[in-house]
Protein backbone atom coordinates (compact mmCIF):
# COMPACT_ATOMS: atom_id res chain seq x y z
CA UNK A 1 0.00 0.00 0.00
CA UNK A 2 1.24 3.47 -0.81
CA UNK A 3 1.67 5.38 2.42
CA UNK A 4 2.37 8.97 3.36
CA UNK A 5 5.76 10.10 4.59
CA UNK A 6 5.96 11.32 8.15
CA UNK A 7 4.84 14.85 8.96
CA UNK A 8 3.24 16.77 11.76
CA UNK A 9 -0.20 18.21 11.31
CA UNK A 10 -0.87 21.63 12.78
CA UNK A 11 -4.31 22.98 13.48
CA UNK A 12 -4.25 26.76 13.64
CA UNK A 13 -7.08 28.55 15.40
CA UNK A 14 -7.22 31.36 12.87
CA UNK A 15 -6.08 32.37 9.44
CA UNK A 16 -3.51 34.63 11.03
CA UNK A 17 -2.11 31.73 13.02
CA UNK A 18 -2.03 29.56 9.90
CA UNK A 19 -0.08 32.27 8.10
CA UNK A 20 2.34 32.52 11.00
CA UNK A 21 2.85 28.75 11.08
CA UNK A 22 3.56 28.64 7.36
CA UNK A 23 5.96 31.56 7.66
CA UNK A 24 7.70 29.86 10.59
CA UNK A 25 8.18 26.53 8.92
CA UNK A 26 8.92 27.91 5.49
CA UNK A 27 9.63 25.47 2.70
CA UNK A 28 9.25 22.49 4.98
CA UNK A 29 5.56 23.24 5.35
CA UNK A 30 2.51 23.12 3.20
CA UNK A 31 -1.01 24.31 3.64
CA UNK A 32 -3.67 21.62 3.35
CA UNK A 33 -7.42 21.99 2.88
CA UNK A 34 -9.03 18.98 1.19
CA UNK A 35 -5.72 17.36 0.45
CA UNK A 36 -6.88 15.72 -2.79
CA UNK A 37 -3.99 17.27 -4.70
CA UNK A 38 -1.35 17.31 -1.99
CA UNK A 39 -1.72 13.84 -0.46
CA UNK A 40 -1.28 11.80 -3.66
CA UNK A 41 1.78 13.94 -4.43
CA UNK A 42 3.13 13.19 -0.99
CA UNK A 43 2.48 9.47 -1.44
CA UNK A 44 4.41 9.59 -4.66
CA UNK A 45 7.12 11.56 -2.83
CA UNK A 46 6.85 14.44 -5.31
CA UNK A 47 6.72 16.76 -2.33
CA UNK A 48 7.57 15.89 1.24
CA UNK A 49 6.57 18.68 3.58
CA UNK A 50 7.25 17.76 7.19
CA UNK A 51 4.63 20.18 8.49
CA UNK A 52 1.07 20.36 7.23
CA UNK A 53 -0.99 23.36 8.27
CA UNK A 54 -4.65 22.39 8.12
CA UNK A 55 -7.14 25.11 7.22
CA UNK A 56 -10.28 23.19 6.33
CA UNK A 57 -11.67 23.58 9.84
CA UNK A 58 -11.37 27.37 9.90
CA UNK A 59 -14.82 28.89 9.78
CA UNK A 60 -13.45 32.07 8.28
CA UNK A 61 -12.66 30.11 5.13
CA UNK A 62 -15.98 28.36 4.75
CA UNK A 63 -18.40 31.24 4.49
CA UNK A 64 -20.32 32.17 1.39
CA UNK A 65 -22.19 35.38 0.76
CA UNK A 66 -23.93 37.22 -2.03
CA UNK A 67 -23.98 40.98 -2.15
CA UNK A 68 -26.98 42.99 -3.21
CA UNK A 69 -25.49 43.45 -6.67
CA UNK A 70 -25.11 39.72 -7.11
CA UNK A 71 -21.38 39.46 -6.45
CA UNK A 72 -20.53 36.23 -4.70
CA UNK A 73 -17.78 35.63 -2.18
CA UNK A 74 -16.80 32.04 -1.51
CA UNK A 75 -14.51 30.86 1.26
CA UNK A 76 -11.52 28.97 -0.05
CA UNK A 77 -12.20 25.83 1.96
CA UNK A 78 -15.73 25.33 0.71
CA UNK A 79 -15.93 22.12 -1.25
CA UNK A 80 -16.49 21.97 -4.99
CA UNK A 81 -19.64 19.98 -4.27
CA UNK A 82 -21.00 22.83 -2.18
CA UNK A 83 -20.47 25.09 -5.19
CA UNK A 84 -22.29 22.64 -7.42
CA UNK A 85 -25.25 22.44 -5.10
CA UNK A 86 -25.46 26.20 -4.73
CA UNK A 87 -28.47 27.09 -6.85
CA UNK A 88 -28.00 30.82 -6.39
CA UNK A 89 -24.39 30.62 -7.49
CA UNK A 90 -25.30 28.47 -10.49
CA UNK A 91 -27.83 31.13 -11.43
CA UNK A 92 -25.40 34.04 -11.17
CA UNK A 93 -22.27 32.36 -12.43
CA UNK A 94 -23.20 29.31 -14.46
CA UNK A 95 -19.75 29.04 -16.02
CA UNK A 96 -18.04 28.80 -12.68
CA UNK A 97 -20.54 26.26 -11.34
CA UNK A 98 -20.11 24.26 -14.54
CA UNK A 99 -16.35 24.20 -14.14
CA UNK A 100 -16.56 23.14 -10.50
CA UNK A 101 -18.84 20.28 -11.51
CA UNK A 102 -16.36 19.07 -14.10
CA UNK A 103 -13.50 18.63 -11.66
CA UNK A 104 -12.50 15.00 -11.10
CA UNK A 105 -15.02 12.62 -9.53
CA UNK A 106 -17.91 13.03 -7.10
CA UNK A 107 -15.99 11.86 -4.03
CA UNK A 108 -13.04 14.12 -4.81
CA UNK A 109 -15.37 17.09 -5.31
CA UNK A 110 -16.74 16.35 -1.85
CA UNK A 111 -13.27 16.90 -0.41
CA UNK A 112 -11.57 19.16 -2.94
CA UNK A 113 -12.01 22.86 -2.31
CA UNK A 114 -12.57 26.11 -4.15
CA UNK A 115 -9.15 27.37 -3.11
CA UNK A 116 -7.50 24.04 -3.73
CA UNK A 117 -8.67 23.85 -7.31
CA UNK A 118 -7.56 27.40 -8.04
CA UNK A 119 -4.13 26.56 -6.64
CA UNK A 120 -3.92 22.99 -7.89
CA UNK A 121 -0.35 22.10 -8.77
CA UNK A 122 0.70 21.99 -12.38
CA UNK A 123 0.81 18.53 -13.89
CA UNK A 124 3.12 16.69 -16.21
CA UNK A 125 3.29 13.02 -17.05
CA UNK A 126 7.00 13.03 -16.31
CA UNK A 127 6.29 14.50 -12.88
CA UNK A 128 3.05 12.98 -11.59
CA UNK A 129 4.67 9.62 -11.19
CA UNK A 130 5.88 7.52 -8.30
CA UNK A 131 9.27 7.94 -6.74
CA UNK A 132 10.41 4.67 -8.32
CA UNK A 133 9.26 5.74 -11.78
CA UNK A 134 10.98 9.10 -11.47
CA UNK A 135 14.13 7.36 -10.26
CA UNK A 136 14.05 5.26 -13.40
CA UNK A 137 13.35 8.29 -15.58
CA UNK A 138 15.72 10.67 -13.80
CA UNK A 139 14.73 13.80 -11.90
CA UNK A 140 13.33 16.84 -13.67
CA UNK A 141 13.31 20.57 -13.06
CA UNK A 142 10.24 20.25 -10.86
CA UNK A 143 11.88 17.61 -8.67
CA UNK A 144 15.15 19.43 -8.19
CA UNK A 145 16.87 18.07 -11.26
CA UNK A 146 18.88 19.80 -13.90
CA UNK A 147 16.73 19.32 -16.94
CA UNK A 148 13.19 19.11 -18.19
CA UNK A 149 12.42 15.54 -19.29
CA UNK A 150 9.88 16.80 -21.81
CA UNK A 151 12.11 19.43 -23.39
CA UNK A 152 15.70 18.71 -22.30
CA UNK A 153 17.07 21.88 -23.85
CA UNK A 154 14.52 24.08 -22.12
CA UNK A 155 15.59 26.22 -19.19
CA UNK A 156 12.09 26.11 -17.71
CA UNK A 157 9.49 23.64 -16.51
CA UNK A 158 6.53 23.04 -18.80
CA UNK A 159 4.14 21.36 -16.37
CA UNK A 160 0.55 22.19 -17.23
CA UNK A 161 -1.91 24.37 -15.36
CA UNK A 162 -4.65 21.81 -14.69
CA UNK A 163 -7.32 23.75 -12.87
CA UNK A 164 -10.83 23.75 -14.29
CA UNK A 165 -12.00 26.70 -12.22
CA UNK A 166 -9.02 28.99 -12.80
CA UNK A 167 -9.76 29.77 -16.47
CA UNK A 168 -13.37 30.65 -15.77
CA UNK A 169 -12.47 32.68 -12.68
CA UNK A 170 -10.03 34.67 -14.80
CA UNK A 171 -12.61 35.08 -17.55
CA UNK A 172 -15.15 36.36 -15.07
CA UNK A 173 -12.68 38.89 -13.74
CA UNK A 174 -12.79 37.30 -10.32
CA UNK A 175 -10.52 38.42 -7.53
CA UNK A 176 -8.78 36.42 -4.87
CA UNK A 177 -8.29 37.45 -1.29
CA UNK A 178 -4.91 36.41 -0.02
CA UNK A 179 -3.84 36.45 3.62
CA UNK A 180 -0.18 36.73 4.42
CA UNK A 181 2.33 37.90 6.97
CA UNK A 182 1.71 41.48 5.81
CA UNK A 183 -2.05 41.16 6.17
CA UNK A 184 -4.71 40.72 3.53
CA UNK A 185 -4.43 41.69 -0.10
CA UNK A 186 -6.89 41.39 -2.92
CA UNK A 187 -5.65 40.49 -6.37
CA UNK A 188 -7.20 39.60 -9.69
CA UNK A 189 -7.24 35.82 -9.99
CA UNK A 190 -5.33 36.25 -13.23
CA UNK A 191 -2.35 37.59 -11.34
CA UNK A 192 -2.23 34.56 -9.04
CA UNK A 193 -0.47 32.65 -11.77
CA UNK A 194 2.95 32.62 -13.40
CA UNK A 195 3.98 30.90 -16.59
CA UNK A 196 6.40 28.58 -14.86
CA UNK A 197 5.45 24.98 -14.25
CA UNK A 198 7.80 24.78 -11.34
CA UNK A 199 6.42 27.83 -9.52
CA UNK A 200 3.03 28.51 -10.98
CA UNK A 201 1.57 30.48 -8.10
CA UNK A 202 2.48 34.10 -7.44
CA UNK A 203 2.05 33.69 -3.71
CA UNK A 204 4.65 34.69 -1.19
CA UNK A 205 5.91 32.63 1.72
CA UNK A 206 3.15 32.12 4.25
CA UNK A 207 0.42 33.39 1.96
CA UNK A 208 -2.91 31.60 1.83
CA UNK A 209 -5.76 32.05 -0.61
CA UNK A 210 -8.74 32.68 1.64
CA UNK A 211 -11.63 33.79 -0.55
CA UNK A 212 -12.73 33.93 -4.13
CA UNK A 213 -14.82 36.94 -5.19
CA UNK A 214 -16.89 36.52 -8.31
CA UNK A 215 -18.18 39.89 -9.54
CA UNK A 216 -21.85 40.62 -10.05
CA UNK A 217 -23.05 39.13 -13.34
CA UNK A 218 -24.09 42.53 -14.62
CA UNK A 219 -25.43 41.11 -17.84
CA UNK A 220 -22.43 38.84 -18.48
CA UNK A 221 -22.94 35.26 -19.52
CA UNK A 222 -20.33 32.57 -19.07
CA UNK A 223 -19.44 29.08 -19.98
CA UNK A 224 -16.64 26.54 -19.49
CA UNK A 225 -15.97 23.60 -21.77
CA UNK A 226 -13.54 20.92 -20.74
CA UNK A 227 -11.69 18.56 -23.02
CA UNK A 228 -10.94 15.17 -21.51
CA UNK A 229 -10.96 11.55 -22.55
CA UNK A 230 -13.68 10.31 -20.20
CA UNK A 231 -16.82 11.74 -18.70
CA UNK A 232 -15.37 11.93 -15.21
CA UNK A 233 -12.13 11.63 -13.24
CA UNK A 234 -9.80 13.07 -15.85
CA UNK A 235 -7.85 16.30 -15.59
CA UNK A 236 -8.42 18.76 -18.44
CA UNK A 237 -6.54 18.20 -21.69
CA UNK A 238 -7.64 21.69 -22.56
CA UNK A 239 -10.29 24.02 -21.21
CA UNK A 240 -12.10 26.99 -22.69
CA UNK A 241 -13.71 29.60 -20.51
CA UNK A 242 -15.79 32.32 -22.08
CA UNK A 243 -17.41 35.38 -20.50
CA UNK A 244 -19.62 37.29 -22.82
CA UNK A 245 -21.82 40.35 -22.73
CA UNK A 246 -24.17 40.65 -25.65
CA UNK A 247 -26.82 43.18 -26.35
CA UNK A 248 -29.29 42.43 -29.13
CA UNK A 249 -26.87 40.06 -30.79
CA UNK A 250 -23.95 42.45 -30.64
CA UNK A 251 -20.94 41.76 -28.45
CA UNK A 252 -20.35 44.38 -25.80
CA UNK A 253 -17.64 42.56 -23.93
CA UNK A 254 -15.84 39.29 -24.20
CA UNK A 255 -13.11 37.40 -22.42
CA UNK A 256 -11.65 34.07 -23.49
CA UNK A 257 -9.30 32.08 -21.30
CA UNK A 258 -7.72 28.73 -22.12
CA UNK A 259 -6.83 26.17 -19.52
CA UNK A 260 -4.37 23.27 -19.63
CA UNK A 261 -2.40 24.50 -22.62
CA UNK A 262 0.37 26.24 -20.67
CA UNK A 263 1.67 26.51 -17.13
CA UNK A 264 -0.94 29.13 -16.35
CA UNK A 265 -4.41 30.03 -17.64
CA UNK A 266 -3.98 31.84 -20.95
CA UNK A 267 -6.17 34.85 -21.58
CA UNK A 268 -6.53 35.71 -25.26
CA UNK A 269 -7.61 39.33 -25.01
CA UNK A 270 -6.16 40.52 -28.30
CA UNK A 271 -7.88 37.71 -30.13
CA UNK A 272 -11.35 38.54 -28.86
CA UNK A 273 -10.90 42.29 -28.92
CA UNK A 274 -12.16 42.46 -32.47
CA UNK A 275 -15.44 40.82 -31.50
CA UNK A 276 -16.59 43.83 -29.54
CA UNK A 277 -19.19 45.81 -31.40
CA UNK A 278 -19.73 42.95 -33.84
CA UNK A 279 -22.58 40.47 -34.07
CA UNK A 280 -21.67 37.05 -32.65
CA UNK A 281 -22.45 34.84 -35.60
CA UNK A 282 -21.03 31.44 -36.49
CA UNK A 283 -18.43 33.01 -38.71
CA UNK A 284 -17.12 35.17 -35.88
CA UNK A 285 -17.05 32.22 -33.50
CA UNK A 286 -15.22 30.12 -36.06
CA UNK A 287 -12.60 32.79 -36.58
CA UNK A 288 -11.93 33.29 -32.89
CA UNK A 289 -11.88 29.54 -32.30
CA UNK A 290 -9.35 29.00 -35.08
CA UNK A 291 -7.24 31.82 -33.72
CA UNK A 292 -7.30 30.29 -30.24
CA UNK A 293 -6.17 26.96 -31.63
CA UNK A 294 -3.30 28.66 -33.43
CA UNK A 295 -2.19 30.40 -30.26
CA UNK A 296 -2.51 27.36 -27.99
CA UNK A 297 0.73 25.51 -27.46
CA UNK A 298 0.00 22.28 -25.64
CA UNK A 299 2.99 19.99 -25.20
CA UNK A 300 3.44 16.24 -25.11
CA UNK A 301 3.07 15.80 -21.37
CA UNK A 302 -0.59 14.93 -20.90
CA UNK A 303 -3.01 12.27 -22.11
CA UNK A 304 -3.54 11.85 -25.87
CA UNK A 305 -1.48 13.72 -28.43
CA UNK A 306 -0.67 17.39 -28.21
CA UNK A 307 -1.46 17.71 -31.91
CA UNK A 308 -5.01 16.60 -31.26
CA UNK A 309 -5.29 18.76 -28.14
CA UNK A 310 -4.22 21.81 -30.09
CA UNK A 311 -6.67 21.03 -32.84
CA UNK A 312 -9.43 20.50 -30.31
CA UNK A 313 -8.91 23.92 -28.77
CA UNK A 314 -10.81 25.25 -31.75
CA UNK A 315 -13.72 22.94 -31.02
CA UNK A 316 -13.99 23.64 -27.34
CA UNK A 317 -13.66 27.38 -27.82
CA UNK A 318 -16.46 27.30 -30.38
CA UNK A 319 -18.58 25.15 -28.06
CA UNK A 320 -17.93 27.51 -25.16
CA UNK A 321 -18.97 30.53 -27.21
CA UNK A 322 -22.15 28.86 -28.41
CA UNK A 323 -22.97 27.71 -24.91
CA UNK A 324 -22.31 31.13 -23.40
CA UNK A 325 -24.30 32.91 -26.09
CA UNK A 326 -27.36 30.81 -25.43
CA UNK A 327 -27.05 30.73 -21.64
CA UNK A 328 -29.38 32.72 -19.47
CA UNK A 329 -28.35 36.07 -18.16
CA UNK A 330 -28.76 36.25 -14.43
CA UNK A 331 -31.36 38.70 -13.29
CA UNK A 332 -30.09 41.22 -10.80
CA UNK A 333 -31.48 40.16 -7.45
Amino acid sequence: MLRLPRFSYLRPASVAEAVAMLADHGDRSSVIAGGTDLLPKMKRRQVQPTVLVGIAHLEALSHRETTASGAVEIGASRTLTSVLKDAELAHHQPGYAQAAGLVSSPALRNTGTVGGNLCVDTRCNYYDMSEEWRTASGSCLKTGGELCRLAPSSPRCWAISSSDTAPIAVALGATAVVAGPEGEREVPVASLYRDDGNAHLALGRGEILTRLRLPAPDGWRSSYVKLRRRSSMDFPLAGAAVALKIDRGVVEGCRLVLGAVASQPVELSDLVHGLVGQPLDEEAIEEVASGASRLAKPLDNADLSYVWRKRMVKEIVARAFRQAATSEVAAVP
Binding site: W133, R229, R230, S231, S232, D234
Partner: peptide, 17 residues
Protein backbone atom coordinates in the same frame (compact mmCIF):
# COMPACT_ATOMS: atom_id res chain seq x y z
CA UNK B 1 9.20 3.37 -19.23
CA UNK B 2 5.53 2.63 -18.75
CA UNK B 3 3.52 5.59 -19.90
CA UNK B 4 0.42 5.07 -17.76
CA UNK B 5 1.12 3.05 -14.61
CA UNK B 6 -1.87 4.36 -12.64
CA UNK B 7 -5.62 3.88 -12.46
CA UNK B 8 -6.08 7.53 -13.46
CA UNK B 9 -3.88 7.53 -16.55
CA UNK B 10 -4.48 3.96 -17.72
CA UNK B 11 -7.85 4.84 -19.23
CA UNK B 12 -10.81 2.51 -18.89
CA UNK B 13 -14.47 3.36 -19.38
CA UNK B 14 -16.27 4.69 -16.30
CA UNK B 15 -19.91 4.12 -15.44
CA UNK B 16 -20.80 7.36 -17.17
CA UNK B 17 -18.97 6.30 -20.34
Amino acid sequence: LLHHPSVLEYKTPLSSD
